[in-house]
Every structure is written in structure tokens, then in C-alpha cells.
Amino acid sequence: MSSSKRKKQALVVDDSLTIRIYHSSLLRSFGFDVDMAENGMEALEKCLKKQYDLILSDINMPVMDGYEFVKKLRSYENYKLTPIVFVTTLNSETDRKKGFLAGATLYIVKPIDQEVMKNIIESIS
């Protein structure tokens, strides 16, 4: 493709279908191409096949949770600086710390207003 403006790619990782649908429609409305993954393992596989510009991930997931996924992903050179956002209901200090040290760029506690979310996404991507 010769188009100079490649659409930004995003990955939504969440075990809940509803949330996957919700987040991806949100990101699409901001102009992203969105892929989805059900858990950290699936997400990791997808990330290695394609370079994403933004990742929105849940923390509590079966198979591989968000912490482990992000930690593993950050070990790849091409994902060192990619904005990774944890969107979660976990709101304790330990969770946050674990999240950041695993490599999250942002840690967002739900619920969050759509407009605000949009703004945050715009600011970091």
C-alpha cells in the first residue's frame, strides 16, 4: 500500500466479550484499527505477529493475566515504549504498583468517561 498514513493499530485484551466490544468500538471511533485478544497469551501471540501502537488490557484474565503479558511484552525491543494501558477495577496500591512495574504506561481505574478516555488515548498515542 502506498498510503503514507497508515492507520494506527490497537489491541484490546480482555476476557469479557462485552468489554472487548466496548473498548474496541471506542478505539475504532478514535480512528484505530482494532484487534482483540481474550487473554494475555493470545495477546502476546498477536503482538509478535504485528506491531501495535496501543494496547488496552485487563488485568484479571485466565491463562495469562495482564501483569505477565505486559512484563513479557516489554522484554521485546520493539515494545519498549508502546503505550500499554491497564484498564481495571483493581484499585489498590499493590495492584497499581504491580501494574506499573510490569510495564504499564498508564493505569486507569474504571469506570471512566468516554470523553476522558478518548483524551487520554489521544495524549499518549
Binding site: I108, I112, N119
Partner: peptide, 8 residues
């Protein structure tokens, strides 16, 4: 929203 996002 931009300020709320920043605060968040």
C-alpha cells in the same frame, strides 16, 4: 475531559 484525564 483533557484535565480529568490528566488527573486520572
Amino acid at each position: 475531559p483533557e484535565i480529568e484525564g490528566f488527573i486520572k
